[in-house]
Simulated assay, not measured.
Amino acid sequence: MFTGIVEAIGTVSALIPQDSTATGGGGTSLTISNAASILGDVHLGDSIAVNGTCLTVTEFTADNFKVGVAPETLRRTNLGELKVGMGVNLERAVGGDVRFGGHFVQGHVDTTAEILSKTPDGNALTIRFRPNDPSVLRYIVEKGYITLDGASLTLVAVDDKEKWFEVMLVAYTQEKIVIPRKAVGDTVNVEVDMAGKYIEKQVQAQLEKGLLEEGGLLQRLVREAVEKALAEK
């Protein structure tokens, strides 16, 4: 579990594709350097979110760490687009003493989104995105939470018809995450607020139960409609 508060910007120092017949199953071995500030208490097997993707530490030194990226992760995220020298957002999994400045983040990427525009607004920056999978828009609401490349951000606008959403980055945030460094056309990892998914599933289950069971919602609605029609005669 993560909070979406980026702790450091690391640098991709090595990308080594793994043979599909060897350990790694055709994925990639990724080494991140300039990460000393988050490695003081690291252990093998710990989870670190890299651009919002929960990955497991397999090796580490005082300054860098290595993770394996599975083929499915490469397909579902923008990690396959990384190149040596690029910056990545980093966050350690939360501990018991961590204050939640962001929101509950799993590090499980739902889709990617393309940067459509970057518009300065005073010292802030408004960025518009189009999700690769438009179905996630049902979980994206104005003033709600969203995680982009591992950063917990507040949505300032959503257009379901045109299929885009916007966030605004204050000056401080622009300095602490990698998104402002990206260009129009680049992609970010997207994780929507998990609360929306749970609510949707529970509501759907209750509706299905109410529609199908004896004396349920559908039967009540039909009965009430019939009774109303008969009373009006």
Results as ranks from 00 to 15, higher is better:
28 T>V: 14
28 T>Y: 05
29 S>L: 14
29 S>N: 07
29 S>W: 14
30 L>R: 00
30 L>W: 00
30 L>E: 00
31 T>W: 09
31 T>F: 13
31 T>P: 06
31 T>L: 11
32 I>T: 06
32 I>P: 04
32 I>Q: 03
32 I>C: 12
33 S>K: 04
33 S>G: 07
34 N>M: 12
34 N>V: 12
34 N>P: 08
34 N>H: 12
35 A>N: 03
35 A>K: 00
35 A>G: 03
35 A>P: 00
36 A>I: 08
36 A>C: 07
37 S>K: 09
37 S>H: 11
37 S>A: 13
38 I>D: 00
39 L>M: 01
39 L>E: 01
39 L>S: 00
40 G>V: 14
40 G>Q: 10
40 G>E: 04
40 G>D: 07
41 D>F: 13
41 D>E: 09
41 D>K: 12
42 V>D: 01
42 V>F: 10
42 V>G: 02
42 V>T: 04
43 H>Q: 11
43 H>W: 15
43 H>A: 15
43 H>M: 14
43 H>S: 13
44 L>I: 14
44 L>N: 06
44 L>H: 09
44 L>D: 02
45 G>V: 15
45 G>N: 04
45 G>K: 08
46 D>E: 03
46 D>K: 07
46 D>L: 04
47 S>N: 06
47 S>I: 12
47 S>Y: 05
47 S>M: 07
48 I>K: 04
48 I>R: 01
49 A>I: 10
49 A>D: 01
49 A>L: 14
49 A>P: 06
50 V>P: 00
50 V>E: 00
50 V>N: 01
50 V>M: 06
50 V>A: 03
50 V>I: 13
51 N>A: 07
51 N>M: 09
51 N>H: 06
52 G>P: 05
52 G>A: 14
52 G>L: 09
52 G>T: 11
53 T>V: 15
53 T>N: 01
53 T>L: 10
53 T>C: 15
53 T>F: 06
54 C>F: 05
54 C>D: 00
55 L>G: 01
55 L>W: 08
55 L>K: 04
56 T>M: 02
56 T>E: 00
57 V>N: 01
57 V>Q: 02
57 V>G: 02
57 V>R: 02
57 V>Y: 02
57 V>C: 09
58 T>G: 05
59 E>G: 12
59 E>L: 14
59 E>K: 12
59 E>A: 15
59 E>F: 14
60 F>K: 10
60 F>V: 06
61 T>I: 13
62 A>L: 09
62 A>I: 13
62 A>T: 10
62 A>F: 03
62 A>G: 07
62 A>E: 08
62 A>S: 08
62 A>K: 08
63 D>F: 08
63 D>N: 05
63 D>G: 03
64 N>S: 13
65 F>W: 05
65 F>C: 09
65 F>Q: 03
66 K>F: 13
66 K>G: 07
67 V>I: 11
67 V>Q: 03
67 V>A: 14
68 G>K: 10
68 G>V: 15
68 G>D: 10
69 V>F: 03
69 V>A: 07
69 V>Q: 00
70 A>V: 15
70 A>T: 15
71 P>D: 01
71 P>Q: 03
71 P>N: 03
71 P>W: 05
71 P>E: 02
72 E>L: 10
72 E>Q: 08
72 E>W: 06
72 E>M: 13
73 T>L: 10
74 L>Q: 07
74 L>D: 05
74 L>V: 09
74 L>P: 00
75 R>K: 12
75 R>I: 15
75 R>E: 09
75 R>S: 12
75 R>N: 05
75 R>Y: 08
